[in-house]
């Protein structure tokens, strides 16, 4: 009797373990750091929207799963994935080696350069160690821009790190920052289109070296969720094939260049 009981308990445990292993995701929770216009932001009515959001919802439709967006500040976004607050991250996350050690990436779904933005009267044409000396640079904490600026300019300039891109734009308008380093489209929609002051891009758009700027944006999963990543990749390929991707792209960035 006792043996039978322990056997059945063992069976239960195995069943539980295997179902946890081959977990079917009918409901995928996706972590996102809002706002990051135009990738993810809220409209005046409070509705969550943006390129990531629309593309993510489209992918979920194709896979036949329901998606739920979970908001999480950027500097805790990877730990949040590990602690199962959500199952994927789709939040303008650049694929690079440092992150590959922590998470499993989908195929890249968009590539995006970074760029320097400053008020038009700053008086420099390019961002180098010499021109940025003594200036205050704004970056979002824990981003690849943060890593790049920290490694290359922390000896000559002051670096201010912000939790959200919005706080950074606010301090740019307040003239607390001389220059900020951002994903190009983010700076474009927040600073270049700002009505507060006139901002310009300083120098070229930057996507090299690869060790910082990586291989485009990807959706991140826990390392063991290979099946889920594969499903997203298939859906992504399908969406890119039939033109839906281009339609969503032009919604936020105009026509494909």
């Amino acid at each position: 009797m006792k043996k039978l009981l322990s056997l059945s308990l063992l069976g239960l445990a195995v069943a539980a373990a295997s179902s946890a292993h081959a977990r079917d995701y009918d409901n995928v929770r996706i972590g996102v750091d809002v706002p990051y216009e135009p990738m993810e932001f809220r409209t005046a009515e409070g509705e969550l929207t943006g390129f990531d959001i629309d593309l993510g919802n489209e992918l979920c439709d194709r896979m036949g799963v329901t998606c739920e967006w979970v908001e999480q500040e950027w500097d805790g976004i990877v730990p949040g994935l590990m602690s199962r607050n959500y199952d994927a991250i789709m939040s303008s996350m650049t694929i690079n080696d440092e992150r590959r050690e922590q998470v499993l990436f989908s195929d890249p779904y968009i590539t995006m350069p970074s760029a320097w933005f400053a008020a038009s009267d700053l008086g420099i044409n390019e961002a180098t160690k010499e021109t940025l000396e003594g200036m205050t640079i704004g970056v979002q904490r824990g981003t690849l821009q943060d890593n790049y600026v920290t490694d290359n300019f922390s000896d000559v300039a002051n670096i201010s790190r912000y939790s959200t891109a919005d706080d950074m734009v606010l301090d740019m308008e307040a003239e607390r920052l001389d220059i900020v380093f951002l994903d190009f489209p983010i700076g474009q929609s927040t600073l270049l289109e700002s009505e507060e002051a006139e901002y310009v891009v300083i120098g070229e758009r930057i996507s090299e070296p690869k060790e910082y700027f990586g291989d485009g944006f990807g959706i991140a999963f826990r390392q063991r969720d290979e099946a889920l990543a594969e499903k997203f990749n298939e859906a992504l390929a399908e969406v890119q094939e039939d033109g839906t991707y281009d339609e969503i792209y032009s919604r936020y960035f105009g026509e494909e260049e």
């Binding site: 730990p79 904490r141 824990g142």
Partner: peptide
């Protein structure tokens, strides 16, 4: 650290965000 000051907690948040090591 919410107003960009690199105080003790700011340093911890920086290290946490950079190495994903809470």
């Amino acid at each position: 650290s919410v107003v960009t000051l690199m105080d003790l907690t700011g340093a911890a948040r920086f290290v946490y965000a950079r190495y994903y090591a809470p």
